[in-house]
Structures are given as structure tokens and as C-alpha cells.
Nucleic acid binder design. Sequence first.
DNA 1: TTTAATTACCACCTTTCGGTGGAATATACA
DNA 2: TGTATATTCCACCGAAAGGTGGTAATTAAA
Lengths: 138, 138
Amino acid sequence: MHFRKTTEYAIRVMVFLAENAGKRFSVNALNKTLDIPYKYLGRLMNQLAQKGLVEVTQGKYGGYLVNADRLSEIYLYQIVDAVEGLQDYDRCILGFPQCSDENPCALHHLWMEQREAIKNMLYSNSLADLLKNNFSRR
Amino acid sequence: MHFRKTTEYAIRVMVFLAENAGKRFSVNALNKTLDIPYKYLGRLMNQLAQKGLVEVTQGKYGGYLVNADRLSEIYLYQIVDAVEGLQDYDRCILGFPQCSDENPCALHHLWMEQREAIKNMLYSNSLADLLKNNFSRR
DNA sequence: TTTAATTACCACCTTTCGGTGGAATATACA
DNA sequence: TGTATATTCCACCGAAAGGTGGTAATTAAA
Ligand code: SF4
Ligand code: SF4
């Protein structure tokens, strides 16, 4: 029960860029401060740029940044979605075809409760919320 | 964010055996009703048996079972522990070395809340609880 | 216009997880 | 004692995730 390593990397980077909103960082710089493998990070940043979560400038003195005025528009679920997709959050633990809220297996309620809590956390917190330590929970 | 497939398999089997407590099932029988690859399931059952979560009898008419009077002793965390270990549940999402409850990153509180909720769910529900739909949550 | 710093792209390697095949061993019972 | 039905064990296969290397394209500025 965990996020993929790549997802952790992505969150790490995004939180860092949010804390330094407006400043531009090269992969090299990010690699040094964030302890994520250089080449892998490069690929990841490219992905995040293509999904529109960070702005990129190429060439010398180029790099990645997230603008301060976008912090409240970028939610955690978008970061997760960009790297590992959101499918798993609607998939069931036992995967029986016949099941539903009306015809649940022994774990249904227990499991749904946790899943919904996590989904809710991802959907209700933007980067701005994180920085404010303004954690909305419900 | 998901359990390993193997963990799902394990929970599936254990819940099934709990629902049919006392009855013995061969891998073949389990494979047919639970839709888990035959050989892989065989290996998994062996693991569960070695961890003491199921009783096994070898040879003809042999198979696996869980006794009715053990249902209240077998907790979800034991099943998870038996197949994927519990390490991930104490590992942090960002993995910075300097962090703690006193010196948290922007995600700390948010993340800990979910992690603890899941751990609590695993630690406070036995197979007997599942069957009773008697979900203790705190 | 050349150079240095940087992203973009593509192919490949490694590790881990899920899955398979086959033979050895155990056991009930005819 | 022989046979059928099981588990057990070991080695291997395949797919997916994580990670690396090399080179082309892009850009600022000397
Ligand atoms: S009842 Fe719920 S938890 Fe159980 S298998 Fe169906 S969707 Fe999954
Ligand atoms: S502060 Fe908490 S969430 Fe953040 S890196 Fe440390 S342990 Fe993880």
C-alpha cells in the first residue's frame, strides 16, 4: 500500500517548485537538491511539462518552474494522474464482477472508506493549500 | 496507490476460507472459484501456510483450511505482512532524512492521517470482524 | 557565429513482481 | 502395494517499473 516511486518523485518536485514558485530550475539543480536520479528526473520533468503542470524553457539558462498564480489551480490528484493515472482509485480490492454497494463483499465498506478518504485528500488539496498548511479534509 | 496484486489475492483467499471456515479446499478448487492463476496460487497458499495463517494437509484429499475458532485471531495486517511486509506503512512519502512530526514537510500531516487510518483499519479488523460486518474503525 | 548549458528524444539495461513448467514428495484408499 | 490426487520445491519466463547513456535540438550570450 504505497504510491509508486515515480509518483513520490513527482510530488517531491512539485512541492519544491511550489515552495520556490516563479523561480526556474534546471534538471541539474533539481537533481542536486532533491536526490532523484538525474536522467530519470529529466524524463519525469518532461512528462510534467507536457501535462501542463510546470512551465519549461529550453536552451541555455532554461529549466522548469511553476508560477505563483497557478498554485491554487494545481491539485494533488493532477500530479498523481500525470504519472500513474487515477484508475487504481476506482478499482476494487477483490475485483469480483458482481459486487456493488448493495451486494458488497466482507471488505467493501472498510475498503471504500479508506479509498474515498485518500481520493478526497487528493482532490481537495492544491499546492497553495499545502503551502498554507491549510489542509482541508472533508 | 494500491495493494500489490499478490496481497489482493491473499486477502481474497483468506476471506473465502473464513466464509467457509473449517472446510478444506485444494488449490484446484480455490483456483476455480477465486480466479487466481493455479500455479501462482499454489505458491501463495504455501506461503500462507508457512506463516501459520492457514492449516494445510498434504496428499490425496489434502488442501488448506482456516479453523472457525481462529477467525478472531487473524487480523488483516497479518495477511498483508505475510505477503508484502509492513515496511511501507512506516515509510514516508518524500523520504527526506531530516523530517519529523516537529519538522514536517508540506504534506506531512495530510499524509500521516491517511497512513494511520489505513494502518488502523488493518490492525483492528480480524477475519471474524469482517464476517460480522462489525467494522471497528478507531 | 561559435560555444556552453540546457531540454527532448530514443534505445537499452536492471530489478522486481507476477506467472509457468516440471519433477519430487506425501497421503488416502482401492 | 499401486494409483490417483494433493502439496512442495526449484528454476525459469515475461511484463512492468525504475534507471542509464548517447545524441540531437534549442537557446542565451560571449
Ligand atoms: S464488494 Fe466492494 S470491496 Fe468487495 S470485491 Fe466488490 S467492490 Fe471490491
Ligand atoms: S515531513 Fe513527513 S511526509 Fe514530509 S518527508 Fe518527512 S515524513 Fe515524509
